[in-house]
Design a protein around this nucleic acid. Structure first.
Lengths: 163, 163
DNA sequence: GGACGTTATGTGTATATACTCCTAACTCAA
DNA sequence: TTGAGTTAGGAGTATATACACATAACGTCC
């Protein structure tokens, strides 16, 4: 399909060919569709969370700290599907703003993350908003398609990870 | 494991409640699932593109420049589902590396973006890799589920945008 | 009990993302 | 024309992302 175009062709021909093939490929580009959907859904939550001064991604981190109890950096990074070093940077603003604390574990290599009292209060205010956003989407999307979508996403992720 | 929150017993109750609710909400958290899937799929393409020195997101930009011909910043940003200012920054490395050029349009407010000859050559080498990655995924995921997933994503995006 | 491989994390660097504010250029009506 | 409103884009700031490298602490094997 994407036969390498010969250099002999004029630029115009090359441009036209690239344009046609690219548009075709774009119709089934999963990356762009995932990006669109992720952007759309997180923007819904971002707007709801704006008055609280945090973003959807930050809520995800706070929530997982709560869910996991006192995770290490690596455990928390896995839970929120981020690179370990990314999470380290993400914790900066949250710690600065007083929502989480970090301290050394018994194994002094690891750093444990916990919610502060402020962090717990923020989470209690934020979680209902997330629930509300999700329920609104589910109601409008349909419960069956919603579960289908989640299953599909799960399977897609699994397939890629299997190698 | 979860024990460090024993500063006060009242905190314990709060934590437990948060933990249960959060885990529940997480089971149907679309944001995390979309993030996982997007990360997984783009990493496949990123690895294929590594020898060419560009990433999946950069290929997306180059491709859309080709598809659209000579788009303005705003047109191109819309096409790749990025904020306008984000795209401006993204064009920096691509222009520095000689893959795109920008120039003023007849309306001197707009900046037009075009592929350089180097950019065209890079795109010709990169597109087959993207096609290969996509076909591999489709083969393993199944064509029917694949199309279902794309439709679901499209509808989800549309629902959010409708307000 | 020290040398060595392993593990958990931080830092430097670079790209990606987007909000707010600012300026230049265009349009249109008076 | 000229002034007001609109539009395209850049810059400042801040967060998000992650690779490569460095470091400190752990465990183990002699």
């Amino acid at each position: 399909m994407y036969i390498l175009l010969t250099q002999m062709e004029s630029h115009k021909d090359t441009e036209d060919t690239l344009r046609r093939d690219s548009a075709e490929a774009d119709r089934c580009s999963i990356c762009l569709n995932l990006k669109k959907a992720a952007k759309a859904t997180s923007s819904v939550l971002d707007e709801l969370l704006a008055p609280l001064g945090i973003r959807a991604s930050q809520l995800g981190v706070l929530n997982q700290v709560s869910v996991l109890g006192s995770p290490t950096i690596t455990e928390l990074a896995d839970a929120v599907v981020s690179d370990r070093t990314t999470l380290t940077r993400n914790l900066g603003p949250l710690e600065r703003d007083g929502y989480v604390d970090t301290f050394a574990g018994h194994d002094r290599r690891v750093r444990m993350v916990t919610l502060t009292e402020e962090g717990r209060e923020l989470l209690q205010r934020a979680l209902p908003l997330r629930e509300q956003a999700e329920q609104t989407l589910i109601r409008r999307f349909g419960e069956e398609p919603w579960n289908d979508l989640l299953k599909h996403l799960d399977r897609l992720t699994a397939i890629v990870r299997k190698g």
